[in-house]
Structure formats: structure tokens, C-alpha cells
Design a protein around this nucleic acid. Sequence first.
DNA 1: ACCTGAACACCGTTCAAGT
DNA 2: ACCTGAACACCGTTCAAGT
Lengths: 213, 213
Amino acid sequence: MARPSLSRDAIVDAAVALADDGGMGAVTMRAVAGKLGVEAMSLYHHVGDKRGLLEAAAERVWAQVDTTSRDSPMDASDWADDVRHIASCAYETLLAHAWALDVASSAGGEPRMRVIEAILDALTRAGLSSDDVYEGYHLIDAVILGYVAQQASYRGETGSGAGASAGAGAIPAGLDRVLEHAAAHQLERGPQSGFRIGLDLVLDSLARRVPAA
Amino acid sequence: MARPSLSRDAIVDAAVALADDGGMGAVTMRAVAGKLGVEAMSLYHHVGDKRGLLEAAAERVWAQVDTTSRDSPMDASDWADDVRHIASCAYETLLAHAWALDVASSAGGEPRMRVIEAILDALTRAGLSSDDVYEGYHLIDAVILGYVAQQASYRGETGSGAGASAGAGAIPAGLDRVLEHAAAHQLERGPQSGFRIGLDLVLDSLARRVPAA
DNA sequence: ACCTGAACACCGTTCAAGT
DNA sequence: ACCTGAACACCGTTCAAGT
């Protein structure tokens, strides 16, 4: 039973695996098929399109984000912890599959909507005005996507080039702050450290906008 | 003088133009050459690589961001306005050329470093601790990149699909907050409105961390 | 119903040849 | 020095044919 007759799920799995090591460019209809011991054209009986396959792969990534609240679902006081939990999980997951961010415009499908729902729900439970829920969600989402993009690009920079010191070409003379900043990057930091600091700063600002009980 | 003998600049210009309408996928060595009335292989005398060409194109986009401070260069009090000015300009520019964000990991080159320098300089002038400058820059950068990604994906969603109402497929039952949120999206809002609100929230938080003079 | 070989219209890139 | 035709090894996708 090396091949359970080829299923859509198996195809999407193979695409995710290929993208994880090798990036989105490594996802080729022929490569996906090869990984499943089948010819490229067989895939079209299950996925319709390469675009559709990539969207399904991105959706699978979003589905890995844990959106369950940690404690009693109606507890308003821990709304910030709930957001922290969901956002951290999303950050970690997306960073592990950074290619998922480059897939199509509106990728993510229902799994992504569940993440959005969970964040909106936490902000609503906090007692924020509906305007603040609206704007707060966008800010939190931007922070997640932004830090993932930032961190992914920083990784790619030091992971591939010959000399790991200078980054994307030496820093031109006169950009002294950038030079300092690059040096500060060398310091040891915990995982998520920058992201968590930024997220907490945003959450504190939002907490200040909760009307007094 | 239809063809000033083909220059690297002209090639990069053509690549930017093709990407602006048609996305990164429209940038093809053959298409770029065609736009310049030349054969594809001629490009290799000036750019070396398609990757290099795309990086040069992204660099040209970053170069459009205005990094000049608005008033006396040593004025510390307007550091927040300076950040607002640079960040808004970056947001607008990147949104107009959203493909530039998908180019290679560390794209942007020296022009992007100048943007980073300007932001770091403003935060330093504010009198923030070096740790806060470090983390504050990352947060601001994440906010810029995040809102651009968010807005670009929202655009792509309503710009292409058949029915403009539902977005990326209808919203599944049970996701009531998402439904509300999608409805709120229909309201008229100024350009940059979400981004400016998020950015201001972040800048306020940073301002609170400036040690008292 | 599911799989496949051959084929089509594309890619990026190389290389020897032209001027 | 700069440009190019032909060619190579790839793409995604279609289609008629096999089982």
C-alpha cells in the first residue's frame, strides 16, 4: 500500500513538504507528482490548478494555528493573554512556513478566518468599542504579518550568503545608526523576543482604551 | 533615438513598469526585452540574472521613499512627525508597488538602508534608550510591512473576484465577528486610515517611554 | 473513474556566432 | 563591446488514449 490511490490530501501534504524545504519555487507539479510516485498530469484529477494547490497548502498552514481560548471562554480579564496566545502561535507557525505568506492575495481560507474570529472575539470581550475592535484587529494582524516578514527576510539574509557578518552587502558609509543596529542584532535573544515586545506594547495601548468598568 | 543602445537603467525601468501592471509574474526576460525592442539574451550583458534584475527593481521602489526630515535636522520634539512622514511615504510607495515586498529576502539595498537610518535617527533624537530604539524600529518596520501586506491582499480580493461582496469565498456560519468585521469594511474610509491609526498608537506608546527631560 | 504519454506554448539561461 | 539565433532543460496545462 505504498500509494493509497492518490488523494487530494496527500497531494497538499506533498506540496507543503516541498515548500518547507526549498521554498515556493520548489513546488512544481512535476516535483509534487514525483514525491508521490506518480506522473504530473495525475494531479489535475484532484486539484484543478497549481494556484489552487498552493492555496490549499497555505490553508493547511493556517489550520495549524491554535485558536482555542486557554481558560473559561467568557472570562474578559484574560483577553490580552488570549490574543498573546493566538498571535504567538500564528507567528511561530507562519515563520516555520514563511512561503505561505507569498501565496496568492487572499489565501488562508476558512482556517485563517477562524484565527481572525478568535482575535476579534478576544478584543470584543475586552470591552473595546467596535471601532477599537476594528482598528485593533488590523493592527495586531499587521504586527503578526510584519514581524514574520521581517524575521523571515533576516533569516534568509544570514542563512545563505558567504560572509554572515555584513548582511545584504556591506553597509555604506554614513549610515551610522544602521551600523549600530546591525551590531545589536548580533546579541543573543530569545525566540520571539522582538515580536513579543512589539505585541505587548500594542496590547498595552489597547488595554488603555478599554472603558473603565 | 528610439533605443539609446540599451542601458541597465532602462532595463530596470521596464521591469518596474511590467511589475506595476501585471505583478511580478509579468516580469519575464522575454517581456522586458520586448518592451525595449530587443531580444531577451541582450539583457544578460547588463543584469547578469533575473534575480538581480528583480532586486534592482525593488531597490528602485525603495529609493522613492522620501527620507528627508521636514524641519531643522536637530529638532528632537518632532521626532514622531518625522517617523510619521517617513513611514507614511514608505507605506504609500510600497502599496503602489506591492510586488516589491515579494522580491527576494533581503531586497531593498542601500535605498532601503537609508529609510532604516532615517527612522533610527528619529527614534534616537527622541531620547529613547538604545534598547527602545532597537525594538521600536522593529515594531515600526513591522507595522509598515504588515499594513502593506494586509491592504494589498484586501485589494486583490475585491479587485478580481466575480462578486465583490463576499471576499475570499463566503464566510462560514458561526464566524459572527468576522461577518461583522467584513461589513465594517464596507464603510467609507480615507486613504491610509487604518495604517495611520495603528502607527499613531505605536508612536504614542513609544512617546510614553521617552525619559522625562 | 482514474492514470498517462505525447505535445504545446511557454520559461531562464548558455554558447557559438555574428557585427 | 554589444547583440542575436538556435538550443537546452525546464515549466504549467491540454488532450486523446489507455485501463
